[in-house]
Computed example of a mutant assay.
Amino acid sequence: MTMNNRTIAGSVGILLLFLGSWEWGPAAMGMPEYVLPNLSHVWHEFFVMWNNSELLKHTLITAVEVLLGFGIGAFLGLAIGVALGLSPAAEAMLSPYILALQIAPKVAFAPLFVMWLGYTIYPKILVAVLIVFFPVMINVLSAVRTVDPDMVNLIRIMNASRWQIFRLVEFPSAMPALFSGLRIASTLAVIGVTVGELVGGNLGLGYLLVDSEGQGNTAGVFVAIVGLTLIGIVAYGGVVLAEKRVLHYMPKANLATA
């Protein structure tokens, strides 16, 4: 059996162990259903919510919010990270304000966004944008600022323009750090959207989570949590796939593993 096959077999074994523990563990520990429902109960509740609570609709809404928040936040993080990386003066001038905004708990902005924009999808997207922005921006900024100066000097000797230096040296050098930030941001986007839905909203998996909690439906809470987790896994997997396609020319040891 090859290393790859052993890895897959090990992962499947851990998954089966987890699912088995979830199915029979609560009863073995004497755990009441309203505290920790077993897997069968959660599975049954999934079909109930699918038929009666428009689970697919709420899942798609959350997925769209995550996609938009992630995309907008990543684009802003990339653009501002590059701009500040290329301009030390601008970074020095803006760094105190960027640091203050980074330190501020981003989820605390969710109620404010709801007050401004109402119970729409926009507050959820904005929270996701705010959370996604920083890891992408910081990674890109650091990468642009640490480009090998010898490479820059070499291409300058060849009479390259400022745009060519950026396109041929600085931006490609920042790509691994960019994808490292995108991996982190893809999971944080789900957190941002969920917080926005928890604070104010009548759509999305976060809303279903709050609704199930209000009804004392623990199995429904688990259904929402599993749905959010799957969205995060898909988002993370999409970033990993894009990274492999874009950075296929780089040795595996050099790829970001965050």
Rank of each mutant, 00 (worst) to 15 (best):
V144P: 12
V144S: 10
V144D: 10
R145T: 11
V147M: 03
M151P: 04
M151H: 13
V152N: 10
R156F: 08
I157M: 15
M158A: 14
R162D: 14
R162H: 11
F166C: 11
F166P: 10
R167A: 14
E170L: 12
F171Y: 11
F171G: 08
S173A: 15
S173R: 08
S173E: 08
A177H: 11
S180L: 04
R183H: 03
A185T: 05
L188S: 08
A189M: 03
A189N: 03
V190I: 04
I191N: 07
I191G: 04
G192H: 11
V193L: 02
T194R: 03
V195I: 15
E197M: 11
L198M: 13
V199T: 12
G201M: 08
N202K: 10
L203H: 13
L203K: 15
L205M: 06
L205F: 00
G206Y: 00
Y207D: 05
L209F: 15
S212W: 00
Q215Y: 13
G216I: 07
T218M: 13
T218D: 09
A219H: 01
G220N: 01
V221D: 02
F222Q: 08
V223G: 07
V226C: 13
L230Y: 02
I231S: 06
I231N: 02
G232C: 06
G232Y: 02
G238N: 00
